[in-house]
């Protein structure tokens, strides 16, 4: 029996593909004439390692960025491909990785916006994201 389980797990790992899901997606509202926002989410991967290569938002420009402090100066740097570890998760959260949303229509709190994530292996995943107040933590 133990032997069978071992074989089964070997088979399972051999056949593993990226199994990616997206949870807790939200974006910040824009204020007045402001057209810049940030989006966040938890990317959970139950399969093999994958990479997030693009994100899109209707009628806006969107890129994955990282807020990184270098010598007391905060910079937002574009991230070409974000690693999603095998059987792990990558969290996009304030002060770290985020989706930079620019030049789009106003984002009003309480409404939702559609985010499309493109992964190297898992392909495209579209989720609704809640638009939260600008003061959301």
């Amino acid at each position: 029996m133990k032997y069978l389980v071992f074989i089964a797990s070997l088979l399972a790992s051999g056949a593993a593909t990226a199994e990616v899901t997206i949870a807790d997606a939200w974006v910040r509202e824009t204020i007045g004439a402001g057209r810049t926002s940030a989006g966040y989410a938890r990317i959970v991967n139950t399969g093999a390692a994958d990479r997030l290569v693009a994100v899109s938002v209707p009628a806006a420009m969107a890129d994955v960025h990282e807020s990184r402090e270098q010598g007391g100066v905060m910079r937002m740097l574009p991230v070409k491909a974000l690693e999603i570890p095998a059987k792990g998760e990558t969290v996009l959260k304030p002060g770290g990785y985020h989706i930079m949303i620019m030049n789009g229509p106003p984002l009003k709190r309480g409404e939702t916006v559609t985010l499309t994530f493109t992964f190297e292996k898992a392909g495209k995943i579209t989720v609704p994201a809640k638009i939260a107040p600008i003061t959301a933590p």
């Binding site: 910040r28 940030a38 807020s67 304030p94 930079m100």
Partner: peptide, 8 residues
């Protein structure tokens, strides 16, 4: 127009 750090 700072979407991530300034609101925080």
């Amino acid at each position: 127009s700072c979407p991530d750090i300034c609101p925080n």
